[in-house]
Structure formats: C-alpha cells, structure tokens
Write a protein that binds this DNA or RNA. Sequence first.
DNA 1: TTGAAAGCGCTAACAC
DNA 2: GTGTTAGCGCTTTCAA
Lengths: 326, 326
Amino acid sequence: MVRTTVQDVARAAGVSVSTVSRALTGGSVSPSTREAVVAVAHRLGYQPNRAARGLITGRTGNLGLIVPDLRNPFFADVAKGVTARARAVDCGVFISDTDEDPVAELEAIATLRHNTDGILLCSPRARDAELLAAADPENTVLLHRRVPGLSSVAADIVDGTRQAVRHLRALGHRRIAYVSGPEDSWASRQRLAGIAEFQGDAELEILPVVSVAPTFDGGVLAGDLVLASTATAVLAYNDLVAMGLLHRLAARAAVVPERLSVVGYDDISFAAMSHPPLTSVAVPKDRAGAIGLDLLLGRGSMTAAQGAEVILPTTLVVRASSGPAG
Amino acid sequence: MVRTTVQDVARAAGVSVSTVSRALTGGSVSPSTREAVVAVAHRLGYQPNRAARGLITGRTGNLGLIVPDLRNPFFADVAKGVTARARAVDCGVFISDTDEDPVAELEAIATLRHNTDGILLCSPRARDAELLAAADPENTVLLHRRVPGLSSVAADIVDGTRQAVRHLRALGHRRIAYVSGPEDSWASRQRLAGIAEFQGDAELEILPVVSVAPTFDGGVLAGDLVLASTATAVLAYNDLVAMGLLHRLAARAAVVPERLSVVGYDDISFAAMSHPPLTSVAVPKDRAGAIGLDLLLGRGSMTAAQGAEVILPTTLVVRASSGPAG
DNA sequence: TTGAAAGCGCTAACAC
DNA sequence: GTGTTAGCGCTTTCAA
C-alpha cells in the first residue's frame, strides 16, 4: 500500500508542499495554482493522512460514539443519525458497543477521549459520578440521558409519557397498567416522573405492574401479570416490551385493542410492523444523533463546551393497538 | 485537554523517551526500569497517541467497517460481531453507513483504506469491477458477498435456500412462490441459484412471483400477488419481506400457515417476534463479522492477503409460520 | 541496556 | 502568493 503523500503531489505539480497543503485545505493560493494542485492530487489519488494532520492540528477529524447495544433498533437509529451527519461534514466515527456493560463503557471513554475530537455517549449505563469523572465536559455530549455538568441531547420523555396516558384516558380507560423497565435507569425514572403527574387524577388509576428487562421476553413475562390485573390498557417501558406483551396476549387469546390496549415507547421501525401495529411514543432518534454531533463539532449556534441541554419533543403515534375501553 | 506524552513520562521517570517507548511496547529494557516506567506512566494517566504511533509504525490499530444500512437488523448484527471482537483485541472500528449508495460506498473505501489497517466491506452494493478497482486485496475482507480476487466471509446461501425448499416440500407443498429481491444483487443471485436446483423436480413447481424491494413494504406488496397465485407456500427474499407478507396476509384474513406457509431468510431477531413466529434460514451474522476481523488482522490461521474464501453454514429455523400443505 | 537523533506525513509560522 | 523550515508524539535505527 504505497500511499501518495503531499511530497508526491508537490513534485508532480511543480510546487512546494506547503502550497499543496494550502491549496487542499483552503489557504490563500492563486486560483490557477489551486486548480492545478487539485487536479494533480486527484489524478494521483491523493488522500491526506488524517493521523499526520491530527498530530499537528490537534484535531483528528474523528469522533467516538458509544452505545450499549447496536442490535437494539433504538441505538441503531441513533447511530444512523450520527453517521449520516458525519458523512456530510467529512468526519470519521468510531463506534464502540459496550454490550450494556458500564465498565466497558468507562474504558471506551478513556480510550476514545484521547484519540478523537469528542465523544457522543448514548444512553450510558454508568452512574452520574462515574461519567463525570471519566468524561471531558468540553468534548462530550450525552445522548438520551442528562447528567448535570455535561452537555446533552434528550427527548422530552415526561411529556411523551403524559401524551400516552392522556390518549388512553381519552379512550375511556380508567385503569392503566404501567410495565416498568430497569428501575435505576435514567430513562425509567423519567417515565415514572411522567406517570407520577397523574397520581392526583381521581378518575384514573395507574397500576404499576412490575419491572422487567427492557426486552421482548420482558414483555412476554409482563403479559400474564397484566391480564391478571384489572387494567384495560397497558403502557410499556418500550416497544420491545410492548411487542412481547402483544405476543403473549395473542397467545392467551386476549384481543388487542378490544380486551386490552397497548402503547409502546420509542417508535422503533418494527413498531409499525407488529400485529396489530403498535401505538407508540415517537422519540427523535437519528435527529438526536445528528444534533449531538453538531454540538460536539460546534457547528450550530451552541457548542458542547457551553454545557447545552437540548430537549427534543416527543409525539404519540396512534396505531391499531390502542382503542376505546371495552 | 492536556495529554501526557512520552516526554512527560520520561522526565518523571528519569529516563529517555526511547526507554519509555521500549518499556511500554515490549522492547528490551531491564525489568526494574520497565517496572518504574510503567508505574510512572500509570500514575500520570498516560495514554499513547495512536495517531503519532501510527505515523511511524504504519499501522493505525483501527479498521473500517462499511455497511449499507445500520438500521437493517442484519447489518446491525454484523456490526455487533465486529465491534465485540475488536474490543477483545483492542482495535478501533470506524463504521461507515453508506445508505445503500454505491457511490458513497466507493468513497468510504477510498477514505478508509488510507486511514485504517484494513476494511471490512459488508454486502457492498457496488459492482465487482468497481470494488476490485477501489479496494486493496491485501487489506480488504468482504462480508456476505464474494468477488473473485478478494477475501470473503459469506454464508452458504445456496444451501440455505435448498433447506428452505426441502422443508416446504416435506410439508407437502407442491407449488412454492419465491418473492425475489433486487435482481442484480449478489445475495439475490445466490438465492436464485438455490432455487434453480429444483427446476427438474417433477413434483415441485417454483413460481417466481415478483422482484420487490427487500423491505417490509416490499413484502406487503408481494402479499396480494402471492394470494392471487396458486402457491400454498412462499419463500421470501428476507425476513423483512416475509414480515410484510405476514402483515398483508393477516389483513386479508389469509391464515398462516393454514392457508399459506411463509419462510423468511436471515433469521433476524425480530423473526422470532412476528405473528406467527417466522420460519427462517439462519445466517451467521455476528460470527461472520468476527471472523472477517480475524482474517483482516491475520489472527487466525489465514490472512486476508491469501485471498481466503470462508463459507459459513446456514441452518433453517422452523417456527410457526410454516406448516403442512392444506 | 540505554540515549541521541532521525524521521513518519502533515500544517503553520515565518520569510521572501 | 509561494517556499523553507520547524515541529506534532511517537518508534526505531544507531552508537555508546
């Protein structure tokens, strides 16, 4: 792999290396020279060595994205948003999948912070204090999580939960079961905060069913518990759980939404493909990723260094899994 | 972000930079010196600058993974396999999502081949000749695609197709519809090759229905066409198409598998969550990624440079969407 | 075994 | 507007 260097381009174009550098990075060069250099560079298939450039500029042109699990469509969507935007601004993206392990997460932060211009930390599993200790506030943006002292881009989960409950109440449901996820997670606490707003509502009863794994299997497990309750509707921690619920309810011949309405959270693409199609709270996933990247690179009006806290709106998407109370 | 350099460590340890370098990378140093240097490095939180190291060693310690669409669970699974293995061998992974665009793909290859130690090219959309022109055979491994002249790790699609058809034949089906994907793709041609084996089978008729987009919507579209045919079973291009089929068949009150058996391909995680759970040809996805990485890094018995062609077995996973012919 | 010094490919002062 | 030169942080000859 013999790579062409600035030297080669300079020689071929009959100019100095600095002229080549300037011509290619937008320094002051005469139009004609620039044109010639660009042509030669292109002809030689010249690709600047990012490592060398980074060594001197102090910027690598790369950033890191850390996610708990790429297999989870939610994170895949976030990653898609990041990579798409990165491609547009010609920025490389290191992706680290931590397998839901907080320790791996902290290690990834330690490695990436020295080899990238910044880190996008999506739904980290580590605790606030650990994150604060490991991350550089100047070059870190949290995605779908908020920690005081760090910049973040997150969805308005409380409002999304509110919309979901109001939707069910408007359909005449008076007893709604809430299937919770991992209780110590930030996302879970946010949902609970939304639920809590209805505590004083005399005509509504929220039945906390159980805390399950935020997976299809977790939903299957919750299915029987919900059927054993007096609820006429269920709000699930996320779409995966909702799909598990749907599966178990179908197996027990409980027709959705006649017998029970089901509402999910996140609106992953598969929510629309379930049977019946799932009503779900849509969370901007790819958009959060793109905005986080802009924040990191200081491309928008705000920068990560300012400790920005971006909150994106959520919207309830009504499909066939929710209907009038029977 | 003031990073500690070898200089700092050398000064603090009272030795020269070269000694520090040797102590940390396994050169010949006296045990006592090494111990002291390592201690100081650790105390100072020293993290070697990969860019600077790469500049001189010629190896970056990173590799690139190019996929058409991270949102597609198939590719997310492959990516997961790659990143998991990469973490184990302490290797960074650049992920580039090309959005199914062959041009973006070629650009990604051009950028990454100069800034990584190698490229993992998953199910590329570009043509053989373009790939051969853009990629360096020494440092490129194809995943789920074969191109003469390049190393690859792919599943035995022909055999998987064979298993699916035999399964349906064994269930008594005599007219099987095949819903094809993008006709010019490698994966599609492989499936067709598997189908072709049954041309001479007197007791079996394969009805080519149509070529659709390899998506849920493509499957929905194919649903009506399949119902209009005489087929009693359908083999779909992939699970997404199969799920679209399932959806449309349910909407038209065609019960699966009584009225029609449906078999998908790939066995993505959602195949087990569909209604009814989908019979599908399982393809090693994460394993292909991990093996590809080893090939690239020359960690196994083979290396990419040798032009290895690894073929992984496929297995039919029978679930509720396929049953006896009515 | 250790240190001094020469770069890897590139950009940014600084001269011209 | 263009060329010369000094490094960025690191590894690796080459001497000692």
